[in-house]
Design a binder for these strands. Structure first.
Lengths: 130, 130
DNA sequence: TTTATCCCTACTTAATAAGTCGGCTTCGTC
DNA sequence: GACGAAGCCGACTTATTAAGTAGGGATAAA
């Protein structure tokens, strides 16, 4: 479950938006609250917007907000956007072949868990039973 | 669950030893069976030996073999040796704090699964229910 | 004494991640 | 319509890690 700093930042920024009162939140505020390098955050928010997860508004009193209710955005939704989809298909010759099943099972569990947890869970601090 | 090529190689090499008949297996044979760069494999086997997971014998008819029964060596045992122990402790300011619990839960599940599966499971091709 | 094998440190190269830069665009206010 | 507060955007640089290579040295059996 190794996540890049970029992905962690994306999740934390999204959590910040989920917890904010309705209305645009400026990137500057997110950066300060989550201690994320400002320019890097711009970059990440842009990616989330292009993916349709958040909306934005320019100009004074502009900022970002979630494009859907927090309960409708899962952690997996965000991770998939930032990490990109992985086309691995490692080779497992001969006797090592069952390893593929192990990785598959772990991946499935992880996927299921991350699809179940939403930004609403994070923002409210009450996670479903894991 | 991102594993480095090095770790994958280590697991595959160990699986090869687990499946081999008793007696030393030369690195060359492992490299061929699992399509692992020869010199790189040397390096990895050395690490496994220093960790006490495998034994070795030099000279003609030398090679490597498991230091313990295959049923007593879990995937986690190998992974911990090769990946090293991670001292991360990421920061999760404010509202993002529950994310730490999610990663913790996922890590625990993964750890439990990988500790349960042994080289004997891999070599025999019969995994415990996942 | 030759040959097959492991032992060991250090090095190089390739890939990816992390973060920075410069400047442009939009929009509300005065 | 000028100004300032914001977001938009591609390209660039730097740091870190992963992956693999090199060049020998040490052992042991025949």
């Amino acid at each position: 479950m190794r996540l890049s700093a970029r992905t962690q930042y994306a999740l934390r920024a999204a959590a910040e938006l989920a917890a904010a009162p309705p209305g645009p939140v400026p990137a500057e505020k997110i950066a300060a609250a989550q201690d994320i390098p400002r320019r890097f955050l711009d970059n990440i928010l842009l990616q989330l917007r292009r993916a349709g997860l958040i909306n934005s508004q320019r100009g004074p009193d502009g900022g970002y907000w979630l494009a859907r209710p927090a309960a409708d955005i899962s952690l997996a939704d965000i991770i998939i956007v930032v990490e990109g989809v992985s086309q691995d298909s490692e080779r497992f010759p001969g006797v090592a072949e069952p390893l593929a099943d192990v990785w598959g099972a772990l991946r499935d569990y992880e996927q299921a868990t991350l699809s179940e947890i939403t930004l609403a869970h994070i923002a409210s601090g009450s996670l479903p039973p894991l």
